[in-house]
Amino acid sequence: MRDAVGPPCSRPAASDSLGGVAEQQPSHRFERGTDGPKVIVVGVDGSDSSLRAASYAGGLARRQHSLLAVVYVQPVMAAGAALGAPVAETTDQIAEDLVAQIRDAAERVKDIFAVRWEFHTFRGDPYNGLVTAADELKADAVVVGASEQAGHRIIGSVAIRLVKAGRWPVTVVP
């Protein structure tokens, strides 16, 4: 049982085989040294659920005084690029539009609450892009929107794969 005024990792003393008291060493768990998340990564792709996730993550970042890292993973479509389609230009435009939306939203609420945020783009599939982003940014938490695609019930959504990875707390916003 934890003492109300003692440190959270102290334990009561145990008796040794000679009838004396042997002190147990405190148990140590890995911690980054903070009382809350310092970096919250949120994945956005322009869908309604990802924008709701960004709003939710923004609220978490505000309350926790965390950095909000907004991440857009640009898909790499080799087939489209091989056929001469301007895939990179299209995904760059999506990223620019997302940044503009986020800046507008941040500007509207700047007098109400301040949130420190950054926008990052990564290339690849959404799962690996978010994993790379969370690792590189040293994320303490990841927030994503629930998948809106029916096929993900069969092969698994990005959110489910992130939860199964078990490397960060993951919040899935409907």
Rank of each mutant, 00 (worst) to 15 (best):
G36P: 01
I40N: 02
V42T: 01
G43V: 05
V44S: 00
V44F: 07
S47K: 09
S49T: 14
S50C: 10
S50R: 06
A53V: 06
A53H: 05
A54C: 13
A61C: 07
A61V: 02
R63M: 12
R63F: 12
Q64C: 11
Q64G: 05
L67R: 10
A69G: 08
A69Q: 04
A69D: 10
V71Q: 02
P75A: 06
V76K: 02
M77Q: 07
M77V: 14
A79W: 14
A82M: 14
L83R: 12
V87D: 10
T90D: 09
T91A: 11
I94K: 06
I102Y: 08
R103E: 15
K110P: 13
I112S: 12
V115D: 00
R116I: 02
R116Q: 13
H120W: 12
F122Y: 14
F122Q: 04
F122S: 08
P126D: 03
P126S: 04
P126C: 03
N128W: 13
G129K: 01
L130G: 01
A134N: 07
E136D: 14
L137I: 14
L137S: 10
V143E: 00
A150L: 12
A150Q: 10
G151A: 06
G151Y: 08
H152Q: 15
R153F: 12
I155C: 06
S157A: 15
S157C: 13
V158Q: 02
A159I: 04
A159Q: 01
R161N: 11
R161M: 08
R167S: 06
V170P: 01
T171F: 03
